[in-house]
Amino acid sequence: MKTVCTGLAIVCSVLTAIFAVLPLSNLAVIPALAALVFGLIAFYWSRKTGEVKKIIPFTFLLTGVALCFTIYKAVFTSTEVAETTALEAKESQLEEEAIEALEDIDLDLEDLEGLEDIDIEE
């Protein structure tokens, strides 16, 4: 039980650290909670047997640091879109091409007013 919980606490704390540095950092909370729970169980069992391995406090430390980094990112990182120049250029290019193409399409007034289909199949 002690070994299993220690192993799970290590795995979860490493996962917390990995999630914390990825853009999905909000999800680091899930393995962090698991790491804390397994770490506490492992710590409790270790104290009962009289020997607490150094790795258990290390998992707490790693999880704590990763959680602080996650909270920092959640508070101070702004969600914004950058580098849209290529997309804007594409928008203008497609509009110009579309206007040219629409000139060749049969678009008389009759077409605009007559063929108005609306898909209402109930």
Partner: peptide, 8 residues
Amino acid sequence: VKTSKATL
């Protein structure tokens, strides 16, 4: 969007 035939 304006074309010579209509505004879409």
